[in-house]
């Protein structure tokens, strides 16, 4: 089991009032699943994604990732997990502006302590995989939205993380680019990756194999997508 969440609660303090973002989530995800998490804004789906991605700690509950309880890990250990096992994709791409596509993709490898030559080779391979072999030297500002998101995907999968977490990956893209990105995800899924997509768009969720609905910090439905 890749993800095993038991009774997960996350409270935020806002103006000295506790706001419950997650109110007892139970969720299991197996390896090589393709999951969509849907919900209106404020439902807690982004909070869930932060915790799934080891960017944030829950207030209470258990989160086992790869059979390891990550709730008790310190900052360095969480960084290691993000680095080696999780690939992030964000709505706003979050590429480093002053770096080329290739350098952006190299970033996780740099923190993994891999040497320059190997980094280059792995990054090139990842960019080829997302169809950007001819754009490696370009800076993000010289790329279209769809291309930028593909650079971000290359960065997410360059370390062979096993799990890709995508937070509204098509939120800033037009329909054609969105479908292209989803095609890349489908491809990655058939290659054995676990993919979790957070979205509020039905068309995007429709591409996934399992759809989870969240409302007011609770999972209200969890159904396989048979299409």
């Amino acid at each position: 089991m890749l993800i095993d969440i038991q009774n997960l609660v996350k409270d935020y303090q806002m103006d000295s009032v506790d706001v419950a973002a997650l109110r007892g989530i139970n969720l299991q995800v197996q390896k090589n699943e393709f999951v969509a998490i849907m919900g209106p804004s404020g439902s807690g789906k982004s909070t869930l994604m932060n915790i799934l991605g080891c960017l944030d700690n829950p207030t209470s509950g258990v989160y086992r990732f790869n059979n390891t309880d990550v709730t008790g890990l310190n900052d360095d250990e969480l960084s290691d997990i993000r680095n080696k096992h999780i690939g992030f994709i964000f709505q706003s791409f979050n590429l480093l502006k002053r770096m080329s596509a290739l350098e952006n993709v190299e970033l996780p490898l740099m923190y993994a302590g891999i040497d320059k030559a190997k980094r280059m080779a792995m990054s090139k391979q990842a960019l080829e995989k997302v169809g950007l072999a001819d754009r490696m030297k370009h800076r993000p500002s010289e790329l279209s939205g769809g291309q930028r998101q593909r650079v971000a995907i290359a960065r997410a999968l360059v370390n062979n993380p096993g799990m890709i977490l995508a937070d509204e990956p098509t939120g800033a893209l037009d329909t054609t680019s969105s479908m292209e990105i989803m095609d890349v995800f489908k491809q990655l899924h058939t290659e054995g990756n676990t993919i979790i997509v957070i979205t509020h768009e039905r068309e995007i969720a429709a591409c996934c194999k399992r759809i989870i609905l969240i409302r007011d910090g609770l999972i209200t439905s969890d159904t396989p997508n048979l299409n």
Binding site: L55, D75, D76, S79, D80, N94, L95, Y111
Partner: peptide
Amino acid sequence: GIRRAVGGKK
């Protein structure tokens, strides 16, 4: 933030 997300430590 980006650097931290992709695994950069403090």
